[in-house]
Simulated scan of single mutants.
Amino acid sequence: MTATKDARSTPTTRSSAGRWLHDHALLIVSLAIFLACLGGMIASGLQVYNDDQLAHGSAAVPLGEYLRSGDFIEAMFENWESEFLQMGAYVVLTIFLFQKGSSESKPIGQRIPQDEDPRSAKDDPDAPWPVRRGGLALVLYENSLAIFFFLLFGLSLWLHAVGGAEAYSAEQAEHGLPGVTTLEYLGTAQFWFESMQNWQSEFLAVAAIVGASVYLRQRGSPESKPVATPHHETGD
């Protein structure tokens, strides 16, 4: 009994690889799910694309050709565009806007560490390099998260337009109509329909988590307030 108790009380030692996986599991699992869903999108999209090709009397295409097609590029980046817009807008909106009782809002009327001016830490040897450097490097760094998401949004929006223009032009050609350039496609109702149908769902999801986190809880999740916290308390 004593030997068994001692063995059970001995802490388990993780290997360095195991500890790295444990410490980065949220990112790794999210990327793994992304890759699995991307693979499913490619496989099913290729089938749908080739079914449409055959229905119109054209030959089926191999995977490589499908991945270069306007249909695939438009479908891929139409969705990425809305995700990056949502995240960039959420990062910026939560700087200035509040929701009483929500775990997604900063506390009302209180300063939090994220509000502090990093210039006061310029002599801290452990501070990130831009903080110690100051000037333009710090200005860019202290806004780098929003900049990152809006750059990805802009790139995705452009690639959505590139792929969409190709797919739209191919469909126009089937009806004996002229195609469009990428810039012309940006002015079509089709482009904005594709964008808005995704944007509206992203901001609905934001509103849902902001509002639901006032009254609902998920034990163990940092996206939720502690289960016993009163509804009126705002922030973590």
Rank of each mutant, 00 (worst) to 15 (best):
P11G: 00
A127H: 02
L93G: 14
Q200E: 00
F84Y: 07
G135P: 10
H231E: 07
M196R: 14
E65N: 14
A165N: 10
Y185L: 15
S15Q: 00
A7V: 05
W192S: 06
G18H: 01
R132S: 11
A205G: 04
V214N: 01
M87P: 11
G154F: 12
R19V: 02
E171L: 13
A205M: 02
Q110M: 08
V92Y: 09
L186R: 00
G18F: 10
G64K: 14
G164C: 00
Q200Y: 01
K100T: 02
T13D: 05
H232R: 12
V131C: 11
F72Y: 10
L138V: 06
Q190R: 08
S58H: 11
S224Q: 05
L27Y: 00
N50A: 14
V139C: 01
F77L: 07
D124G: 11
F150T: 13
P125I: 09
G64F: 02
Q114R: 09
S105H: 09
G134S: 15
G39P: 06
S120L: 02
S102H: 07
L145N: 05
F77P: 06
Q53F: 03
P11K: 00
Q218G: 01
Y185M: 14
S195T: 09
E78W: 14
D52A: 11
H232N: 10
F77W: 13
Y49Q: 05
L67Y: 15
R14I: 03
N198Y: 08
E174N: 10
V91W: 02
L186T: 04
G164I: 05
I33P: 03
L157I: 08
Q86L: 10
E83A: 12
R8S: 08
A36E: 01
V92L: 13
P130A: 06
D51W: 05
L63V: 11
C37Y: 15
A17W: 04
G211E: 04
V131W: 13
S169N: 08
G57T: 10
H22D: 02
W20V: 06
D115I: 02
L97N: 04
H56Q: 09
I33V: 15
S201P: 02
D51N: 07
S44W: 05
T4V: 01
L31D: 11
V180G: 00
P118G: 04
E223D: 14
